[in-house]
Design a protein around this nucleic acid. Structure first.
Lengths: 125, 125
DNA sequence: CTTGCCTCTGACGCTAGCGTCAGGTTTTAG
DNA sequence: CTAAAACCTGACGCTAGCGTCAGAGGCAAG
């Protein structure tokens, strides 16, 4: 087992990434198309990923669920990858943070609203 | 001032509803198309609403923001209007409640994730 | 009367994150 | 060696809550 062989063994294909992250293969290709995920290619053209692509895809899902667009995630990726951030990126981070916090507040209000109705309908069957 | 005239004075047009609720006129028409909002009509065909249409539209916005579809809101409207609920509606209420709670949890996780990054990028400028 | 704002009914457009064929190559299991 | 499973590149479809014309009427003020 050479060093290069050991490195090659660590690469996984798209199906494993998709199953590992709990998304579809189509979704993983879409992330690449959006510039979020860069894959090496095998001689025959198949995508090859390092295992840490799996938590990365999970992270994408989390950000999507939080309402960020592919574009925003892309703009903020350097904050993770390199730890490098300029003023603009820090401002975006804060802005997204505020957006998410506001959304949480809205959801909690809606939840309270629903809970009131549930309480009423449970006492008035 | 007759009784009927007094009742008629309380009716407002679509623009006032839209401004009052902070949405577009188009949105209000859309809610009617989805069966959420029923309007009377003036002899010339203009929509006429009672003032409580404004908080109702706000409520729609809150439910939309919470991820409910027009269809779901429509199915749950009787729980508000009449207080009448059958078993199926109570189940839907609970299901939506759980969905929203799960969404809040996801958002809080994403928020924590972002906060970590913000903390790191602030200490590594 | 007419100016200007409001309203009406269609009806097409848009966005974004995929789903879903179609038609062909590659890898793997037996 | 062969068949199944996985992968490839397009490319069109879909949903849902509106935005946005287009063309035509309605309504208080001056």
């Amino acid at each position: 087992m050479s060093v290069t062989a050991a490195a090659a063994e660590r690469l996984i294909r798209i199906g494993e990434v998709a199953r590992g992250a709990g998304v579809s293969v189509r979704a993983v290709r879409y992330y690449e198309q959006q510039g979020l995920l860069i894959a090496e290619r095998s001689p025959s053209g198949q995508r090859l990923y390092r295992p840490d692509a799996i938590p990365l895809v999970r992270f994408f899902q989390q950000m999507y669920a939080a309402g960020l667009t592919s574009r925003r995630i892309n703009e903020l990726l350097p904050c993770w990858d390199s730890g490098h951030t300029d003023a603009e990126q820090r401002a975006m981070l804060r802005a997204e943070r505020e957006r998410i916090q506001a959304k949480i507040d809205d959801l909690r209000a809606a939840l309270n609203h629903l809970d009131e109705v549930i309480a009423i309908t449970d006492t008035h069957p």
